[in-house]
């Protein structure tokens, strides 16, 4: 496929390298404390990915498979962009890699792409690290002729990422922080309420961020009957529909987020169940992270 031609491999098979490999980090940049942007070589993914899709990454052999949204891609260069927050061992391990080093595995694009159509006015809400996956959706919605308003929320000014990119992509950007250090001192739901009060109902809301944020965005939009799409992030293993670990209840039915989603009608999602399932391995995750930090001479206790 792609790689064999783009790399000019000969069609006789004997001299082909044994595996595809070579998921080199060609660029690495810190966007905010513990938030890093990676540009990774993954030509097959870059060629076909669409807004809303994700990859599964394994840093090294023995490592966990973790899902990460494709924040951007360059098909010509054969690269994808990932924006990753350090929350545990795997994401911290990834952050310890240098530019030029390679990830063991990158597979994708996984999941169904965002359903893009002309709705009219679309409000895209990105909370924290969720701003990164909102970016391609904002771009695609705008390209489809929508008026796109982006609401960006962060705990504090330092943690706000990709504001410039979002200003380039959206028609209007509203910023808020929990502590008021930048933009309005509010939660994204507060900004959304004000927007609706001032401009009337948007035709669609897309919310990506921590589950608790998405839950409350849905609580805000439900009384107004504003269609609301959320992008779910349960624990995954294979990402191809084989294990069922990523299952969530949507409208009383079980769905596999990796193949049926990751985007769903937010008003039908059982967020509480999803949040409980996400916490299931908390003790082991902490053990793993502490051990890793200790081995690197960092304080194992941590927050």
């Amino acid at each position: 496929m792609g790689t064999s031609t783009t790399e000019g491999r000969s069609p006789s098979c004997a001299d082909l390298p044994a595996t595809s490999g070579g998921f080199t980090i060609v660029e690495k940049q810190e966007l905010a404390p513990k938030v890093t942007r990676y540009v990774v070589r993954a030509p097959d993914v870059a060629r076909t990915r669409r807004a809303g899709q994700f990859v599964i990454v394994r840093v090294r052999d023995g490592g966990e498979r973790i899902p990460l949204t494709i924040a951007d891609a360059d098909a010509a260069k054969g690269t994808i962009t990932l924006v990753v927050q350090e929350v545990g061992k795997t994401t911290a391990w990834m952050a310890s890699l240098e530019q030029g080093e390679a990830l063991a595995d990158v597979v994708g694009p996984l999941g169904r792409p965002t359903h893009i159509e002309k709705w009219g006015t679309v409000v895209c809400i990105g909370g924290g690290i969720g701003i990164a996956p909102s970016h391609p959706i904002v771009q695609a919605m705008r390209a489809a002729g929508n008026r796109v308003v982006a609401i960006l929320g962060a705990r504090t000014k330092d943690l706000l990422i990709m504001e410039d990119e979002m200003r380039r992509a959206a028609d209007e950007v509203l910023v808020c922080t929990d502590d008021g250090s930048y933009g309005r001192k509010a939660l994204v739901t507060g900004v959304l309420e004000t927007f609706v009060a001032e401009h009337g109902k948007p035709d669609l809301v897309v919310a990506i961020g921590p589950p608790i944020m998405m839950k409350f965005v849905c609580k805000t939009t439900a009384p107004h009957s504003i269609p609301t799409v959320v992008s779910l992030n349960p624990v995954m293993v294979d990402g191809t529909g084989m294990c069922g670990g990523c299952r969530v209840t949507v409208g009383g039915k079980t769905k596999f987020v990796c193949v049926d989603g990751p985007e769903f009608d937010g008003h039908s999602v059982d967020f509480d169940e999803m949040m409980r399932r996400s916490r299931f391995y908390a003790a082991q995750e902490k053990e793993s992270f502490d051990r890793w930090r200790k081995a690197r001479g960092e304080d194992g206790g941590g927050p």
């Binding site: 496929m1 790689t3 031609t5 082909l16 044994a18 996984l110």
Partner: peptide, 26 residues
């Protein structure tokens, strides 16, 4: 199989990374 010259490409999901029609072109 590898020593017989078979190329094994992991991390490739047919239907997503490429479709069957894409494969038939190559």
């Amino acid at each position: 199989l590898r020593r017989m010259g078979v190329e094994i490409r992991c991390n490739f999901v047919v239907g997503l990374t490429a479709t069957v029609d894409d494969l038939l072109k190559e």
